[in-house]
Design a protein around this nucleic acid. Structure first.
Lengths: 247, 247
DNA sequence: TAGTGGTCTAGACCACGAC
DNA sequence: TCGTGGTCTAGACCACTAA
């Protein structure tokens, strides 16, 4: 069924087995390019390509001049709907903590009016490119950027409120919306896996070819009205999403 | 911040812009390797590598002998919890239809006892490697394999029931469990993005390097008791997941 | 300084598709 | 038959790391 595999894949598969079987443990150093080449009887460029496959798979990382190492893996668990339960933001906890996992730092908060992207205009029920309030930010865990997020809200719900400030106050923007009688009652999250745009890759520090992100678009509804759209871009290798719901 | 980019990435970025801007529409043919090489002043192997990047990104597909084309994109929307609402399987609809999206065909159903993998044993509360019933299957939409799924259940709930048959009957396995008083009342789904194992790549027809899958592990609870673990492996480019929940 | 990964060249051969 | 993508070779040079 599979047919003959090219040499670089055979080499990649052999090395992958060594890693998945634990023979090459987390943090262990792989043989050098030249050594792999001579050991498997291929040119060094093919050994390079085999390592490209494993790097793309996220199994190894290379440090130029030092070597190639089996990657250490831990994922941040992001729980829904627990994260967004009313009593969380009702009580004043920062919503961001629950969106990103614990120990996340928020950096580079930028707030301002922007023209509504298509998917935002559709959801909020405004004209395409009409002004909406945008709050974008980046989350960092242990010096590693793991998530970008941009929240869009209708301007009539944000004018003159703390939502327009970098620090939206106790309980975050949902608490501010609730004060106006439009606190979210329901959320919908739409999840896709895709490749990052070059800007996103740069902001998340995803230098490897073939890196992937999870794009989560969350719509917050107060009754039938959509009051916020939040687009998050997560390093796919850094997260595990968890959803719980009744039958 | 970014520094100098290697040639193959510059070429890839140029071509990506042409695609994302729509200048190269869906289905359009890209210039040939040799033409890209001469146009951007690089060796053909570098033009190849630039296309490797775009192929890994899922933006283009290559057909040997024919050319490289901008990929056409449509995602199957997989909705939770609607899919798993009690009245669906209570009424007798095949649960698979709701797990995969419409128009999916189920193929290669295999049912039998297997030793419980670790994550299954943990959830079902059995000894590691104890026998559990496994139901595995593959879903195909328009001749394209889009999802693998393997369901694990405790043997004491399946012995002598239609769950042991390839065709589990009206309403699927949840209807059969409900008949024994252990119909699921709650689900938890855990989602990660990762690279496919070689077997998974083969079963899903993911031939390109750098392809990704979404792995969804669903735990079905009857009260506090976990009565089923279902591990699904989805072609990441073929799906969009949608979750809805109250605040 | 010696070894490492990263990039790149300038070819070659193959199987396949379109004509 | 000719152009295509896919693979592979046998080198080269660079920047970097570690000793």
């Amino acid at each position: 069924m599979a047919g003959e595999q090219p040499a670089y894949r055979r080499v990649a598969d052999r090395l992958r087995e060594l890693i998945l079987s634990g023979e090459l443990a987390e943090g262990a150093r792989l043989p050098s390019l030249r050594e792999i080449a001579s050991r498997y009887g291929v040119a060094t460029s093919i050994a390079t390509r085999a390592l490209d496959v494993l790097r793309t798979d996220g199994l190894v990382v290379s440090r130029p001049g030092a070597g190639t190492y089996v990657r250490r893996f831990t994922r941040i668990v992001r729980k829904s709907p627990g994260r967004l339960a009313h009593d969380r933001w009702g009580a004043g906890a920062a919503i961001q903590d629950h969106d990103t996992g614990p120990r996340a730092r928020t950096v580079d908060v930028v707030v301002g009016d922007v023209p509504a992207p298509g998917f935002v205009a559709d959801a909020l029920g405004v004209e395409p490119a009409a002004a909406v309030l945008s709050r974008s930010r980046r989350f960092v865990v242990e010096e590693r950027a793991v998530q970008l997020a941009t929240s869009y809200l209708p301007v009539e719900l944000t004018r003159g409120t703390r939502i327009e400030h970098t620090d939206a106050g106790e309980g975050g923007i949902y608490a501010r919306l609730a004060e106006q009688g439009v606190g979210p009652t329901r959320f919908t999250e739409r999840v896709i896996g895709r490749s990052p745009l070059p800007e996103e890759a740069a902001a998340l520090g995803l230098t490897a070819d073939g890196a992937r992100v999870l794009e989560i678009t969350r719509f917050a509804y107060a009754g039938d009205r959509c009051v916020e759209v939040n687009r998050m871009v997560l390093d796919s290798d850094a997260y595990e999403l968890s959803y719980s719901f009744p039958a």
